[in-house]
Design a protein around this nucleic acid. Structure first.
Lengths: 337, 337
DNA sequence: TATATTAATGTAACCGATATCATTTATAAG
DNA sequence: CTTATAAATGATATCGGTTACATTAATATA
């Protein structure tokens, strides 16, 4: 690997001139610039970015904490992040946390050890307040998809409450009265918002809220299956199930079918996210579409703005949702409710 | 951010001693070590890894080129890579290539600009021979999931030919004679191997190969749907469809159902990969399970071994597969063939 | 032509750690 | 109590760029 000194020597100029010829060509005479560029080409010189970044103190790396890349929705978000990061000259250091806090902390520390400039997290259960206390320094962080309550932090999110409300209204309009919700972990703000939207719609329609219809899942296909199976075993089972993501909805559909019931004939099912599989389930899934890639690109933009000091006070960017009506939701069975 | 000089000053020793106290404690007296560690703790000192890596010339970053992270199988592979990389002190720079060669080249160049030590690619259509020629230097690279023909390169892969043969045999044993295959892009070595396995089984069973039953897809749900629809429109449609991945199989199932046929009553469908959705399709999908996470971890191990000069001549690691029989494959309809 | 001003280039410090080599201090052997 | 040997520590060059400052060359102004 040739370095800037080799280039300088070959071009017969100083290293400073080489650096300027490449970084601020205006400061170098045409004649010299030509000589330098010719030497660069001849040697196949590529600046050592490790050195550049060490000198500048900017790594141009961003840590991304993802609960699980196996989640199709997150995969799309990551895709959007990667594209945006690349466009702006940044790279992503991906961490699949798998709910392992030690792993999260370990990656978050990369910002303090100059391996990354900032951090993006999706679905933040555990804020890094603790870590920040300990190190005393601030961690440039952006949150995507889920709002962090305890920390003022730039965030890009959906109006989850309104979206959940809209879907619940859709089910109410179809005549459903017993609408179950397969939600996420109880402590998650995301779940809290969506449950709130669900209750908003019930309240507005004068339908009593029934705690037993609220079932906690963990966003996996399996948990959707289990939840639906148990909900159907209730004394007064639901005629509609609203799931907090599409994976659980697809799992729920299988559970309902295995119980000998039809979707949406006996039970309607709605999802959230509009992953690619949603349109290919049987029946195709009614769901809330989120601009997943845009979540990613917006999060990256926010973080870079934050790093460049171009950001005011922790903005919250709200992206639009879209209720996609397919065949998994239909009129409530006659005589129900 | 405090640096090693701050620590040295506070501890009343030289920077060299601080460095040794942290890197090679045996070379430092207990008394001095204690002083240093105390100063480290008091200042919250964390070594600047940017500096360490610049000095050492090792970035401890690995570039990962993924055709698309939206593919569930690849997501699992990445998960395995991330885990293994973290365990060994490496980070992953993820690139979602989306079949964009410019993007691939751009990320591959990161190795030449000292942003990464090596590269892992999945499904390599375009070898970097060209890039290597141009730069003259070798690119430490490992290939996963798909073998690269033109370059001798450490690889971790499945015996795709045997796996495809096994699945085809499974269908033959069920009495199917007209077995279609929804394959990937024609130029892919992966597809070539799997088609070869498919033909091996047909030949062994004395079933004539029919070119019209070989349909090229692109690994998406949509392409599986389209392929199945068109295959069923043939004068002599297949009674079984073997898809090169589960997404296409799930798409195919939908296409078959929409044509008014049942799976597996009229047409059996088999997939490849055993993604999480496979067990939740309707009917649950018969497929080939691959140790996806192990692909990832093995690829990372191979690359690190390669970087450390611990590798002989481009080994090919072959991981085992498992035929998972579910309900999407059944006996050929009576009177077929 | 002399002088002021600007453009072009060079010199060298610097970023933060590591590691070589030199030097001092502690221990062992005679 | 020396002297030889080992252990502990310090001073400093180094990695490859960038950049502040110094210096020289070129042009403009009087």
């Amino acid at each position: 690997m040739s370095n800037i000194r080799d280039v300088a020597q070959l071009a017969g100029v100083s290293v400073a001139t080489v650096s300027r010829a490449l970084q601020q060509p205006d400061l170098v005479s045409l004649k010299t610039r030509t000589k330098v560029l010719s030497a660069v080409k001849q040697l196949g010189y590529k600046p050592n970015l490790m050195a550049v970044r060490f000198r500048s103190g900017k790594t141009r790396n961003l840590v991304v904490l993802v609960p699980t890349v196996a989640n199709v929705f997150f995969a799309r978000v990551i895709s959007g992040m990667q594209q945006a990061a690349h466009d702006k000259g940044y790279s992503l250091l991906l961490c699949n946390t798998l709910a392992d806090e030690a792993m999260e902390q370990s990656y978050a520390r990369m910002v303090h050890t100059s391996q990354a400039d900032g951090l993006i997290q999706l679905r933040a259960h555990n804020p890094f307040a603790q870590l920040e206390m300990k190190t005393g320094s601030v961690l440039p962080m952006v949150n995507a998809c889920e709002v962090l309550d305890r920390i003022a932090c730039p965030t890009v999110l959906l109006d989850n409450r309104s979206a959940a409300c809209a879907m619940t209204e859709h089910l109410l309009q179809l005549g459903h009265k017993r609408i179950a919700m397969i939600k996420g972990p109880a402590r998650s703000p995301l779940t809290r918002d969506r449950v709130a939207g669900y209750r908003d719609a019930l309240d507005a329609a004068g339908v009593a809220f029934d705690e037993s219809l609220l079932y906690p899942g963990d966003f996996t296909l399996q948990s959707g299956h289990k939840a639906a199976t148990e909900l159907l075993a209730l004394a007064k089972p639901p005629t509609a199930v609203f799931c907090e993501n599409d994976e659980m909805a697809i799992g729920a559909i299988q559970g309902i079918k295995q119980a000998g019931l039809s979707v949406p004939g006996d039970v309607s099912v709605a999802g959230f996210d509009d992953i690619s599989f949603a349109a290919f389930s049987d029946p195709p899934l009614t769901t809330i579409a989120q601009p997943a890639e845009e979540f990613g690109s917006t999060a990256v933009s926010l973080l870079i703005d934050l790093l460049d000091g171009r950001l005011g006070k922790a903005p919250k960017v709200i992206l639009p949702f879209d209720l996609i009506q397919r065949d998994s939701t239909g009129p409530a069975p006659a005589g129900s409710g």
